[in-house]
Write a protein that binds this DNA or RNA. Structure first.
Lengths: 222, 222
DNA sequence: CTGCAGATTGACTAGTCAGTCAATCGCTGG
DNA sequence: CCAGCGATTGACTGACTAGTCAATCTGCAG
């Protein structure tokens, strides 16, 4: 038992870690189970000794990580801090998660949280818990009066989470710069953007009727 | 020729429209070309008469629709309107696009804009154009002083677009309500949330040090 | 009526790959 | 030294499906 931890590496863990790298590099659908086995340095069949299917590997990766995030958000919410600081902590946690293991966060975002026809639907309840946890932070801010009452907490939470996930997507796709300073700066900027707003308080002008003179024409011609 | 438009339906268009429904229902990777042919009511081989591959169908759908969006954003930006109204128009256009053809927008978001290992990478240049077009609107607002200079336009654009895409994702996953009033309300709310911010101007408190007392611990234990 | 050209058909091929399984390995206790 | 058992191996199978292609159809021009 004790020897197993010193001499024999944890093959199951090795397979999971290899899967993260392979899924991130090639995508879940564009890699073979043999790619994961090769990356882990184990035989093909061993993957099926520890997991019942290729899907189960991804499910395991997602659930492990997502639970850590849910726990973190719950803990942040339980602290006695201003709402903006709580949201700053949530943003910081997610961004640090990406810095710490970009491959894993890439896999989770690309293959699960946005995959409406496969793993996203499967884990919808778990994903929703994150939205609800953020909404809870916003809701208490609304109740204490620091956040606008006109924006529903559920709606605000989606905007906040969406902004963060879009930043990760920008880093994943390499359309946003990825220096340490960029990651650190993003934590404050995203909170300032969503909580404080893009408009400059000194100069902000509220449009009395945002619809005036503007017609949406989404339909394709023809 | 004239008869072709009255009697013979445009089979190519029928295949594209059928593909939207099938891709939205089953996902690109979980459907067969025969599913698309059946849905369109044409023979399997005809799909390959009009398209060189299954991929080309999705590429066509994406490029058609994305170009319409790029044109719309460009046109909105060219108008002489306050920045907030321009962003309201962009949000309205994207949300109306979803209302008009939710299946197509679902396919575009799920299979392309978030698919970092397949179509997303292929169309990265096109996707980036949308970010840049939104950033251009923000940038002029910064220059005229109505938007904060401390938030880079490129960064603000990602937050804005991410919030909108998250709303669509919420509708796609059915975690947000989808009445006509919800769609209409979302147009104003998303602009109010991002431009005006979540915080109530009357009560807003700027945390002098958002980091105080908060430690990010993204690493998995063990 | 005839023949061409493009549209349409669907059976077939060729390749892929998730998952199985019987054999082997290596440790541990008797 | 042996028996037993979980860990490990990798060749193999069964199922699936993207893409091909030769045959057929249809409309029209000569």
């Amino acid at each position: 038992m004790a020897a197993a931890q010193k001499d024999a590496p944890d093959k199951r863990r090795m397979i999971l870690d290899a899967a993260v790298r392979v899924f991130a590099r090639q995508g879940f659908h564009h890699c073979r189970v043999s790619d994961v086995a090769d990356e882990a340095g184990v035989a093909y069949g061993l993957v099926y000794h520890y997991f019942n299917s290729k899907d189960e590997i991804l499910n395991t990766l997602f659930l492990e990580r997502w639970q850590i995030m849910l726990d973190a958000i719950g803990e942040i919410d339980a602290r006695d801090l201003p709402s903006r600081v709580k949201l700053r902590s949530v943003a910081g946690f997610i961004i640090d998660s990406y810095r710490h293991d970009p491959d894993l966060m890439k896999v989770i975002i690309v293959e699960v949280t946005r995959a409406a026809n496969s793993f996203g639907a499967l884990h919808l309840d778990e994903i929703r818990k994150a939205y609800e946890a953020i909404a809870a932070i916003v809701e208490s801010a609304r109740e204490e009066g620091s956040f606008k009452s006109g924006i529903p907490a559920e709606f605000a939470a989606m905007c906040f989470y969406g902004a963060i996930e879009q930043l990760l997507t920008g880093w994943i796709f390499e359309v946003l710069p990825r220096s340490d300073a960029d990651f650190e700066g993003a934590k404050d900027l995203v909170v300032e953007a969503i909580c404080g707003g893009l408009e400059d308080g000194e100069h902000a002008v509220r449009a009395s009727d945002p619809n005036s003179g503007v017609t949406s024409r989404p339909a394709a011609s023809g």
